[in-house]
Each structure stands twice: as C-alpha cells, then as structure tokens.
Design a protein around this nucleic acid. Structure first.
Lengths: 215, 215
DNA sequence: GTCTATAAAGAGATAGAC
DNA sequence: GTCTATCTCTTTATAGAC
C-alpha cells in the first residue's frame, strides 16, 4: 500500500533541495498554518537562503497547490488500487476505510495541510483541488451505494447521508492522530470500521431492563 | 435551547460597535481564516476606522480568544443544561448529540472559528482554550461510559474509543454545513444519532446470500 | 468613541553576482 | 543552484486631536 518513503515526520537532509522542499513545507504548514508560515522559515529549515526557494517555485502558493494535488491524487490512487483487489461490496467498504485512514496518517502533514489550508488557494487552483476532493467523496458514496444495492448495508439513511457520517469519521482523524500514540493507524481503521458498520448499541438490539440503568 | 439572538449569518447594523465586534470578527475569520483577516477589513465591515477597534481591544488576538471562550463556554452550558433534564443514559446521549449539533450549527461562525483557529492563540490563552475543549470532550466520553455502565451501549470499544468516533462525527459537521442546505440541524442530529447508535449494517445483523451482491 | 496620521515590523518577491 | 542585497507592499498597533 505504501511506497518505500520514510514517514512524514522525518526529512533526510542529504536529499537534494527539490525533493525536500514539499516535505519541509508540508511539515511547517501543518505546524503553523499556511499563512503564518514564512518563506524565511522554509528556507531556514532547508538550510538555504530565502531567494533560493524562487529557483524551485514562482510563489509560495505553488507549494500549497502541489501539496494539495499530491495529497488527493495519492489518496485516490491508493484507495482505487486497493478497491480493485476486493470482490465483495462489504470488503470494498472495509478496505476503503482502512486504506484511507492508513494513507492520510502515513503522510499526515500532506493530508492535514490539504484539508485545512486548501481554501487559501485562489481561482482555478482552488476549484481544481475542490473538484478532486468532491470526486473522491463521490467514490466514498458510491462504495456505500454499492453495498446498499447488494443488501449488505441498510438502505436508509441513503448513501449520500451515510457518506456524510463516514466522511466525518475519516476526515477529522488527521487532526488528532499522534504518530507514536496509543493507537496505530491499523487499530484506528478497525475501530472506525466497527463503529460505522455496527454502531454503539449492544448487538442484537435488545435493550436490558431500565432498572439496570444508572440513577 | 437557544437564546433570542439572531442566527450567526446576520448582523444588526443598529447594534453598538461593541456587541457587533465579535460577530463580525467571527464571520470574517470563518470566511478567510484568522491570519488572513485584517483589522482593516473588520473595521470596514463595522463601518468604523481601523484605529477605533483599539478602543475595544488591545490586540487582534483578543478577538480570537474571546471567540474561542464564547464558543466553548456556551456549548458546555447548553449541553449540560439539556443533559440535566434527561434521566436515562441513552436519552442523555441522544440529547448530547442533538444539542451539540444544533448549538454549533446555530452559531457556526463562532464554533468553526474556535475549532480551526484556536491554535493561533499563544501561551496561557492557548492552553486555557485547549483545556476547556479537553474538558468538554471528557463530558462526551463520560456520557458514553455511563451508557455502557447501564448496559445500553456495547462495552467494547471502550468509552474512550467510542468517544473518538463520536467526536469525529460531531466536530467535522461544522465545516460543511450550509444554513439553507437540504438538511436542518435537527435532521443532521437524527442522522448521526442513528448512525452512531445503530451503524450501517442491516438490523438483525443477518447478511443476505452472497449471490445477491453486485458483480 | 471615533477620527487622521504614522510608526515599526515583517511579509513575499526580484536583481544580479558567483 | 545558491548567494547577498534590496524593493515594495501590507500588516498590526500607537499617538494624539476632536
């Protein structure tokens, strides 16, 4: 599922400037936000002078645009590849949740920056990134709709609305995940798959007598 | 549940500057982000000169701080008041979801600004706002834990982890809700209550024959 | 309470040498 | 590819009159 790249929180300082630039920018944008991150600080982390950046980009916004594209293209590619290897609608949905979570958490700086900062893009770039995101969300809704059509998910709420719930579950995770916290991305995937599919009520749906409830 | 204030997307221009300031700031911060919003533009929307703002505040960050406090204090007050009027753990959990969603969507500018921009606060203010948020999230986990203890929610995943799922569901909603869209806050509450409690699998948990699945 | 005017700092971006 | 030096613009915030 992943390439051989190292995790997103480390940067090999022997790499050439070009290939380090986006990772350094994504890390900084994630820490301080796009607008508060200065070209001075990006240059400092790269160990070059400010002016050197402009050999690799025309303007600061180029970095954000490249990060957003990278994030969405990569996410879509990973998920579609994984889905193509699953045959049943329910396995496809489980796979979508797992690969989505693992992908955004593996490259957390990239995906969190895309989600939080894409609105700082202007004009056509903003629209293009928004369209890529809309298309990905449509893929999520389709996966739900297929499972409903196969009868393995409840027909109500409709796919569009179950999709809202699932996307809430998936998107917010990037904001609180800590790489060395108590849950691994795999465990978070299992947690959300279980909660999304089965809900929080006891299995069987039969409630115990009210007298057992706390006062 | 709500005060008699008007919805968050309108501002009465006959109100005095002091009481309009936070609403105008929250609306602008929500549209453009805190850092990209200038004191010039806040002043312009209020119909005063830039320097006049400094009669009401010491610095721009005061506005963000006040917005974050307002958001979290108000949310907690609304939810705790509503919870105190419910007697069973399951009703309390349903009420928490409904009142949380309706409160953050009624004052969407305030709550979305808090969620997105609180990290721009520095030092003690940042820590205080983070603490208020942590305390509120603890209230959510406690509500889940009580329902588990009463046997009306599954004991696994533990309250802490079911809480992650529920908070994901609740928090992300403020980022996509449109005041005049196809779902009202009440309908969104019902949707998420149903999805959180019952999940997406068919009721009864019996899957149909695999032959019915789409090819 | 609100204004005009301005200070002081920091931002993104460019010119041109090496 | 990277540097030094600088330009130009915008920002937050303040001084002091009315």
């Amino acid at each position: 599922m992943h390439t051989t790249n190292e995790p997103s929180d480390t940067v090999d300082t022997t790499e050439p400037t070009a290939s380090r630039l986006l990772k350094v920018a994504a890390a900084l944008f994630r820490e301080k936000g796009y607008v508060s991150s200065t070209t001075r600080e990006i240059a400092a982390r790269l160990g070059v002078q400010k002016a050197t950046l402009y050999y690799y980009m025309e303007k600061k916004e180029d970095l954000l645009y490249a990060i957003c594209l990278d994030s969405l293209v990569h996410l879509r590619r990973e998920v579609e590849l994984a889905l193509s290897q699953q045959s049943t609608p329910l396995d496809r949905l489980r796979t979508l949740i797992r690969v989505h979570i693992c992908t955004i958490l593996f490259d957390q700086n990239l995906h969190l920056t895309m989600i939080r900062e894409m609105r700082e893009l202007v004009g056509e770039r903003r629209r293009e990134v928004q369209r890529l995101r809309d298309e990905y969300e449509e893929l999520v809704r389709q996966s739900i709709a297929e499972a409903q059509a196969a009868g393995v998910l409840r027909p109500e709420p409709r796919a569009k609305y179950q999709g809202l719930a699932l996307l809430n579950l998936l998107n917010w995770t990037a904001t609180w995940y800590l790489p060395h916290g108590e849950l691994t991305p795999e465990q978070i995937s299992e947690l959300f798959t279980e909660m999304f599919l089965e809900g929080a009520l006891p299995r069987g749906g039969v409630l115990p007598p009210a007298s057992l409830e706390k006062e």
